[in-house]
Simulated assay, not measured.
Amino acid sequence: METILHALLLGIVEGLTEFLPVSSTGHLILLGDLLGFQGPPGKTFEIVIQLGAILAVCVVYWRRLSGAAIGMFTNDRDMFFVRNILIGFLPAMLVGVVAYKHIRALLDSPIIVAIALVVGGVVILVLERVNKHPRFHAVEDFPVSLSVKIGLFQCLAMVPGVSRSGATIMGALLVGADRKAAAEFSFFLAIPTMLGATAYSLYKNWSELSFDNMGLIALGFAAAFIAALVVVRAAIGLILRYGFTPFAWYRIVFGGAMLVFLLGR
């Protein structure tokens, strides 16, 4: 029963945090440390719950994604949409293959995660104040150079606790995107980025994969999918209404509390 609860909890946390600027990886690391478990059953479970979160974005934005895939050969805006997503993905793909494993090996610790959460929260508060005159209001309108810059910002998320969505959203705000376009670009960019990371992880860890606990894996997948579905459907409306400030303060409070706990333990 305890293992079932762990699988369910990890799936829910992955789904709730993957597309918000709060760091899903950081939450899973801190949760594992706080509760004293690493989550069942290893690499296979980690890969599958990420796929559940990706599926949620594909379901919510199915019409837009399928329309762009069909129309990119005949419609300029569809072509620009696909182009910008692929270009934004390239920096993370290139840097990830070369350096991700080494970065995680050096920085994968709960204390680093807690510090990154706090620092990221402060950065979000600052950027929310300076981004008063956005110039780009749709993903299709991003120039190539802007997509490259946002892709480079995404590479910062290789540091545990920074947050992939946080890095891309804040990077997009910094270079001139409005809140809605920044958030949507982060959602869409997650699809090739996470699929690429999943494929690479499958390739590197094939010998360690096991589907012996299919029930737990399926539970984690379903929990991540449902939680992410709720978040993705609600996120744009919440962001347009409240901005990113609530996420910033959440990062600061949660990261600060975890840092005090870890240092005092």
Rank of each mutant, 00 (worst) to 15 (best):
Y61K: 03
Y242C: 02
I87C: 08
N205E: 13
N205T: 13
I49L: 03
L8A: 08
G171M: 11
G255N: 10
I111G: 06
A182V: 06
F37S: 14
P41W: 09
A69L: 15
F185L: 09
R265L: 12
N75I: 06
D33C: 05
F225M: 10
K132M: 09
G256H: 06
E14H: 09
P41I: 05
I115K: 03
L209H: 08
I49R: 00
S66E: 07
G237H: 07
C58E: 13
T245F: 00
M258I: 11
A190N: 02
T245P: 00
G36E: 15
A197R: 04
V139Y: 12
S24D: 14
A114H: 10
V126S: 12
A234H: 03
H137D: 05
Y203R: 04
E2D: 15
L90A: 13
I115G: 05
F80G: 01
N205C: 02
R233T: 05
K180G: 11
M258G: 10
I115A: 07
L90E: 06
R251Y: 04
I54K: 01
T193S: 07
F188W: 04
K149F: 12
A181D: 04
S210A: 14
M158H: 06
E2C: 12
I47R: 04
L20E: 02
I239N: 00
F37W: 14
N84K: 11
F80I: 04
F153W: 10
A182Q: 04
P91G: 09
L174C: 11
F247P: 03
G32D: 09
N213G: 14
P160G: 10
E18R: 04
F37V: 14
R265S: 15
Q50A: 09
A227W: 00
V98D: 08
I150M: 11
T168G: 02
A197C: 13
A177T: 04
L174K: 13
V98M: 14
V148F: 06
M170V: 15
T168N: 05
L125K: 06
P246C: 07
L189W: 05
G11C: 06
L31F: 07
M72S: 04
V57A: 09
N84C: 10
L125C: 08
L173K: 03
L16I: 07
G15D: 00
I70Q: 00
S109I: 05
A190T: 05
D178F: 02
S147T: 08
I112G: 03
K101T: 07
S109G: 11
M72F: 15
L219Q: 08
G36A: 15
A69H: 05
I54C: 07
A92D: 02
N75V: 12
F187Y: 06
F261P: 02
A116H: 05
L238I: 14
N84D: 15
F244C: 00
L20P: 08
M158E: 06
D178Y: 07
L152E: 04
L9K: 08
A69G: 11
L156Q: 11
V122F: 14
H6E: 15
S165F: 02
A157F: 12
G237D: 12
F80M: 14
L86S: 10
G166Y: 10
S24E: 14
G120F: 02
A177V: 02
A172N: 05
P134D: 08
H27T: 13
I124Y: 07
A190K: 01
L94T: 12
M194T: 07
F244D: 00
F136C: 01
I49K: 06
P246G: 02
